[in-house]
C-alpha cells in the first residue's frame, strides 16, 4: 500500500461516515419530537428535569439506561411503581427503604419541586424506547404478574389492588415491596370498614406513616379493595 492509498482510505472513511452521521442526525431531529411526545414537554416537565439534575439523581439511577447503575432505572418508574410510591420514596427514603440494603439520600424536596419531578417521570414514561427496558415491557413472566393475571378475573378488588400500586410497598403471598407491612393476614386483624378507612387516610391511625392517602379514589373502589384485603386471613 502506498501513502497515497492510505490517505485516500482516511479521507473516504472519515467523510463518508461523518456525512451519514450528520444526515441521520438531521433526520432524528425531524422525528424525535413525535417519538418523545415533545408536545407534552411542559414547563413543569422541564422544571422536573432541572430538579432531577440538581439533585444528581442520575449518578445513582439510570435514566433511559444511562447514568449510575446503583439504583433502579427510572425511565418507566411512573408506571412500574405508581405515583404514590414515587412521591413517598422521594420524600421519606429513610422510612420507605428502611428494610432495603441499599439506601437513598434524604433530599428535602418541596411540594412544587415534587410535582415537577413527578411530571417529568410521567413524561419519560411515554418516550418511545423501542420497548426498553425489557423488565417493564416484556410479556408478563414475573411471578407477580402471573399471580395477578390469574386473580384478576376472580375479583375486582384484587385488580384494583394491583392497579393502584399497592404491591410497590406491601407484600402479598411473598410478592411485593417491604416499605409497608405484609398484608397476608390483614383480614384477621381488621374488618373491611376499618381497612377502607386506613387506605383512605393511613395517618389518622399511625401519625408517622408514610403511606399516601387514597381518599381521592371512588368510594366503591376503596370498598372493593378493602373487601379483597379482608379476605386475606393468613390461612385462617
Amino acid at each position: 500500500m502506498t501513502t497515497r492509498t492510505a490517505k485516500a482510505i482516511f479521507l473516504l472513511g472519515t467523510l463518508s461516515s461523518g456525512l451519514l452521521f450528520l444526515v441521520l442526525t438531521w433526520d432524528t431531529h425531524r422525528q424525535i419530537g413525535a417519538l418523545t411526545h415533545a408536545d407534552r414537554l411542559s414547563d413543569e416537565v422541564v422544571a422536573g428535569k432541572r430538579a432531577f439534575e440538581q439533585h444528581n439523581c442520575n449518578d445513582c439511577h439510570t435514566m433511559l439506561g444511562f447514568g449510575g447503575y446503583y439504583a433502579p432505572d427510572l425511565t418507566r418508574v411512573y408506571s412500574r411503581k405508581g405515583e404514590p410510591y414515587v412521591r413517598a420514596v422521594i420524600s421519606d427514603p429513610d422510612k420507605v427503604l428502611a428494610k432495603s440494603f441499599r439506601k437513598m439520600p434524604h433530599q428535602r424536596i418541596g411540594a412544587v419541586e415534587m410535582n415537577s419531578l413527578v411530571a417529568f417521570f410521567k413524561w419519560t414514561n411515554e418516550i418511545d424506547t423501542h420497548d426498553w427496558p425489557p423488565q417493564d415491557h416484556k410479556k408478563p413472566t414475573s411471578s407477580e404478574a402471573r399471580r395477578l393475571v390469574s386473580a384478576a378475573p376472580l375479583s375486582r378488588g384484587a385488580a384494583l389492588f394491583k392497579a393502584n400500586g399497592c404491591f410497590s410497598c406491601h407484600k402479598l403471598g411473598g410478592v411485593g415491596g417491604d416499605a409497608g407491612p405484609a398484608l397476608d393476614d390483614v383480614g384477621s386483624r381488621m374488618n373491611a370498614e376499618r381497612i377502607q378507612e386506613q387506605i383512605a387516610n393511613s395517618k389518622a391511625f399511625k401519625p408517622d406513616s408514610v403511606m399516601p392517602s387514597y381518599s381521592q379514589l371512588p368510594a366503591e373502589d376503596l370498598r372493593a379493595m378493602a373487601e379483597f384485603m379482608s379476605e386475606q386471613g393468613g390461612g385462617r
Binding site: 492510505a6 482510505i9 482516511f10 472513511g13 422525528q31 424525535i32
Partner: peptide, 29 residues
C-alpha cells in the same frame, strides 16, 4: 505515517456512525 492514516481512517469510519449504538433505546428512530 502510512499506517497511521489507515488506522485513524478506520477509527473515524467505524467510530462516528458507531455512535448509533447509544441511540438504540433513547427515543430516536
Amino acid at each position: 505515517e502510512k499506517w497511521l492514516y489507515v488506522i485513524i481512517g478506520l477509527f473515524l469510519f467505524t467510530g462516528i456512525s458507531g455512535t448509533g449504538h447509544h441511540y438504540y433505546w433513547l427515543g430516536a428512530p
